[in-house]
């Protein structure tokens, strides 16, 4: 079953993800980041993308560890020296800073996992067709060609293998050369064949009149409301951020990580923003159970 958030207009989901991304970059504060992580994980669980998340886990852990460990090594700034490492000052500031960077990266990557689940190619294509219609046609053609080219490459490699020409045997330079020969056969063949694709476009009237675009998604009232909700909260958060809330200054002097009232207010908005998809699903769940 499709979730309710997935049924929103693609513009809503796209804006949500773009703004959320900017929040994860702007709101560098341990508490905010932890909350962000919790929300993103919950979103991933709600939209059943935990499996995909697991596939990315290794990459995420390695790169965040890398950042966490390297930052203190490169960076000697800060007042609180924890210990010396080969005449290198390891400071508390640099560790905290590295940790926050690593966390932010993890959140961003985890966010992309759910983004990929919700923003299907079809939705993105639709958005493009609204602002860049010709580019959208080009993108659609490319998306259509990619699986075709893959299949052709498979075919080419088996045919050439039957002729004794293979990428699996022989010296490295010969294998690389053979590989590109396959691509070259693909190039010539596909360009020859694609003239027919262009003819088929022309035969169906492409370029004769102003093109309309099929509304796969209708912009409904609730989409408008959702956008207002998201943008309003975002502006409030942004305003708070410019007034110094929701951000932990590490250099030159580390602030206390504790939250003031201003911070807490911003945090509330932050949670309401990131929790949007969850609230929507919750609302749907409640309504379903009341109706039945």
């Amino acid at each position: 079953m499709k979730s309710r958030f997935e049924e929103f207009h693609p513009l809503v989901s796209f804006i949500f993800f773009v703004l959320a991304l900017s929040l994860f970059i702007l709101m560098i504060h341990p508490v905010f980041l932890l909350l962000g992580l919790i929300f993103i994980l919950m979103i991933n669980i709600t939209y059943r993308s935990v499996e995909q998340l697991r596939q990315w886990a290794a990459f995420m852990i390695i790169s965040s560890l890398f950042i966490f460990l390297l930052n203190p090594l490169f960076n000697e700034r800060g007042r609180h020296v924890l210990f010396m490492f080969h005449q290198h000052r390891i400071t508390a500031e640099s560790l905290i800073y590295g940790g926050m960077s690593a966390l932010s990266l993890v959140i961003i990557m985890a966010m992309f996992v759910s983004y990929n689940k919700i923003m299907t190619p079809n939705k993105l294509l639709y958005l493009f067709s609204k602002i860049l219609p010709q580019f959208a046609v080009l993108l659609m053609l490319t998306l259509r060609f990619i699986p075709l080219m893959k299949r052709r490459l498979d075919e080419i490699s088996s045919i050439q293998l039957s002729k004794g020409i293979s990428v699996l045997h022989g010296a490295l330079n010969k294998r690389v050369k053979t590989g590109l020969l396959y691509v070259q056969v693909l190039l010539t063949y596909s360009l020859e064949e694609a003239i027919q694709t262009a003819d088929s476009m022309k035969a169906r009237g492409y370029g004769t009149r102003v093109r309309s675009s099929y509304e796969y998604f209708k912009f409904k009232k609730r989409d408008g409301l959702a956008l207002v909700y998201l943008l309003l909260l975002y502006l409030l958060i942004l305003w708070g951020r410019f007034n110094g809330f929701g951000h932990l200054t590490v250099y030159p002097i580390m602030e206390s990580w504790q939250l003031g009232t201003g911070d807490i207010r911003i945090m509330l908005f932050y949670c309401l923003f990131l929790g949007f998809p969850l609230l929507i699903e919750l609302g749907g769940y409640i309504r379903w159970h009341i109706l039945n």
């Binding site: 294509l125 998306l143 476009m201 169906r204 004769t208 009149r209 093109r211 675009s213 099929y214």
Partner: peptide, 17 residues
């Protein structure tokens, strides 16, 4: 020309607006 069937079906119709 299109990646999915519905896109393919409406392609010509979009072209004539």
């Amino acid at each position: 020309v299109a990646d999915n069937v519905l896109h393919e079906m409406v392609f010509g119709l979009e072209n004539i607006g």
